[in-house]
């Protein structure tokens, strides 16, 4: 084998792969995952914190009993009006950040927002976890509003008491799950809860809470937040 052959292959490889470009969404995904992993490591070292619990205790319980894990009676901070707005739309990045901050006040840190492919995201970190909100219009992103009837049917038929659960409302379907994050190399004590609320008008809000030992919000608290808070402004 000569150097000429090696040079040739090197040139061919570079030519063949030259037009391959990384997606702009990569950076956002790396930052989100990296922050969660860094946070979980810190939380493990520090033994976690109670700041979020205190904040939630003063906010989410307004007008209702004290929150406990999976307590469906937890009140949402900004309930949607009884009459549905005429034309709700996905929030802008700034609007989503403000809504998340209003829903989860306290000793939190706003994370710079990433907006990719029609999806808007915001994060808030706490001493013992991270809460992420993702909003989008499935009609624009997926080509048509998502009908989650088929997703919920087998869950409901199976008793609705497994890792994945579904709640059907007048306005849509809230599919939730909880357990260990499926992230290689993460904190083994990390736990998460997540809900994706597919509204019948096509708008989607996805909330994820991740924390060391336990997520900062329970599954049912997330469901309540997703289905009752005013995530989508009216244009």
């Amino acid at each position: 084998m000569t150097t000429t052959t090696e040079d040739l292959f090197a040139t061919l490889m570079r030519d063949a792969m030259a037009d391959v470009q990384a997606d702009d969404a990569l950076l956002g995904a790396v930052l989100r995952t990296g922050r969660r992993r860094t946070h979980r490591r810190r939380a493990t070292y520090a033994g976690g914190g109670l700041a979020l619990a205190a904040a939630l205790g003063s906010t989410l319980t307004a007008g209702g009993p004290a929150p406990v894990a999976d307590d469906l009676s937890v009140a949402a901070p900004t309930a949607a009006p009884a009459t549905a707005p005429a034309t709700p739309r996905p929030p802008t990045a700034d609007e989503l950040e403000k809504r998340l901050a209003a829903a989860l006040p306290g000793l939190s840190t706003a994370i710079p927002i990433t907006q990719t492919s029609g999806r808007v995201e915001a994060e808030r970190t706490y001493a013992d976890g991270v809460v992420t909100a993702l909003a989008y219009d499935s009609a624009a992103v997926d080509g048509a509003p998502v009908d989650a009837t088929d997703k919920c049917a087998p869950v409901l038929a199976g008793g609705n008491d497994g890792p994945t659960r579904c709640a059907v409302t007048d306005d849509g379907w809230a599919i939730s799950m909880a357990g260990r994050p499926d992230v290689a190399g993460g904190d083994p004590s990390a736990r998460f809860a997540r809900v994706t609320y597919f509204r019948r008008d096509g708008l989607v809000i996805d909330l994820t809470a991740t924390g060391s030992g336990a997520p900062p919000l329970s599954r049912d608290q997330l469901v309540r937040l997703a289905t009752t808070a005013d995530w989508f402004p009216v244009s």
Binding site: A29, V30, L31, T33, G34, R37, T38
Partner: peptide, 18 residues
């Protein structure tokens, strides 16, 4: 595979980030 490549790259960059 591009999808597997993106997953691998993301994992590597997360490691660099941390």
């Amino acid at each position: 595979d591009r999808t597997a490549a993106e997953d691998l790259l993301q994992e590597a960059l997360v490691r660099v980030f941390t």
